[in-house]
Amino acid sequence: MTDPVLQPGPVLQPGHGPIPAATYLPSTPEHVLWGRLPCAADAPVLTVAPGTDVTVDTVSHEGILEDQGRDPARYFARHGATEVLEDAVALAASEAPHRFGVDGPHVVSRPIAVDGARVGDLLAVTVLDATPRVPYGVISNRHGRGALAGEYPRDAEALYSAFATVSADGASGLLPLTEGGERSVRFPLRPFLGVMGIAVPGRERPHSVPPGPHGGNIDIALLTAGSTLYLPVQVDGALAYVGDPHFAQGDGEVSLTALEGSLRATLRFDVVAREDALRQFGELAGPLAETAEFLVPTGLDEDLDAAVQHCVRAAIALLQARFGMDPRLAYAYLSAATDFRISQVVDVVKGVHATIRKADFG
């Protein structure tokens, strides 16, 4: 297979191209945070009623970071890109606070308040659409990071970035087999947002890398269009945010990043009142996803063994609440019928998610 020449479009510049929702949030510097996640002290950039659809432009951190020159126009031009996102250029050139090596890398939206969301409720964020804004992306590995820290990057490299293109039909990513080679490996694109979360109490913004009960950088590749993420509300209004756009990711995300590329995402925000939430899901301690096929409880911990244990306990509790299943039988069912997948191992706090088939329960 020959890697095609990078074409100039389509590129979804801010405010241009299809914007599915009536409410639109761009990623201009005043609408985003860089490297930190919202907290209760952050004023919402939008306030919406439950059931509202919002189209959000997201910007990938790859190509704008300081160790890449903080100049996306120059960075991507080296790889043959003739058009670069204006909001990425503006953010890199702005005085937006970002302490490289202290803050996280991720660009996230400023918070969206949802009317009526109260502590104890669940915020439901449904992904209606996730469309690439550019026909290229980056997979990177940095010194001391990734599953094989100390082995990669090789030699004295502090950073290795692999540039990938999107196929003409928009369905596949194309990555060279060798540096400068003409042959490529082709793999499916499944766009999703790596960061989806709600604000934490207090006045301190969390680091953008480790996920937690607030969600954040959970990197669950199943959260493509049609999926819903449920998050236990920690502050009134929920103060939701998204970012860290991915074009594709394998479970584990072993080299540090997936195929990172900016997305235009359309999301629906709903509130599940506490009483309904308890009936449907039980008492949630952290994020829970749902797809057309699966219920997806999660487990998070710096220790991967502990993350698996947290996920198994969450799955048992979910089966009890949702289907009235005896916990001993739920434990047996999970062993026989459910896959426990590693979401990611590269974000300090490791993630595990279970895929419980809803069809098994009629």
Rank of each mutant, 00 (worst) to 15 (best):
L300V: 12
M1N: 00
A289I: 06
A130T: 03
F163S: 03
G69A: 08
G299F: 01
D42F: 02
I112C: 07
H214W: 10
L267E: 05
I356C: 08
A113R: 10
S172V: 11
D360N: 09
A92P: 09
V114D: 00
P327T: 06
R186V: 15
P211S: 02
F187Y: 14
I64V: 13
I198Q: 06
G80I: 04
D305M: 00
F76E: 01
V11G: 03
D87E: 14
G324L: 05
M196T: 15
F100C: 14
L46G: 05
P287A: 07
D339I: 03
F76S: 00
P18D: 13
S27W: 03
L33Y: 06
D121M: 02
A337L: 00
G170K: 04
V107W: 02
V271A: 05
T55L: 07
L284T: 13
H143R: 15
V138W: 02
A21L: 01
A307P: 07
D87I: 06
A258M: 11
A277L: 09
G194H: 10
N217I: 09
G286F: 03
A238P: 02
E204W: 00
A73P: 03
V48Y: 00
L278N: 06
L175K: 01
G299N: 01
R78P: 08
S109H: 00
R110E: 10
L329Y: 12
T291C: 04
R74Q: 14
G150L: 12
A41N: 10
P26Y: 06
G63S: 08
L37K: 08
V254E: 07
L304V: 01
G69K: 02
A73V: 15
G69Y: 10
P111G: 07
I64F: 09
L189W: 10
R145W: 13
R99S: 11
E204V: 11
M196R: 15
T266F: 04
A117P: 08
F192Y: 15
A93C: 10
L259N: 08
P8M: 08
R36G: 10
H310E: 11
L85D: 04
L65S: 11
A40Y: 04
A225L: 11
E260V: 02
D219L: 09
L229M: 15
Y136K: 00
A88Q: 10
P14D: 09
G252D: 05
T228F: 08
V271N: 09
D67C: 13
P287R: 02
D115V: 09
A81L: 10
G116P: 07
E30S: 13
P10S: 01
L318Q: 00
S184Y: 14
R118H: 10
A314C: 07
P176N: 07
L6Y: 05
A306M: 15
A171H: 14
S262K: 00
F100H: 15
L189K: 11
P245T: 05
A221I: 00
T58D: 06
A332N: 02
A289W: 03
S109N: 00
A164L: 13
I64L: 12
R279P: 01
L33P: 03
R341A: 11
F269E: 06
Q320V: 14
E95F: 03
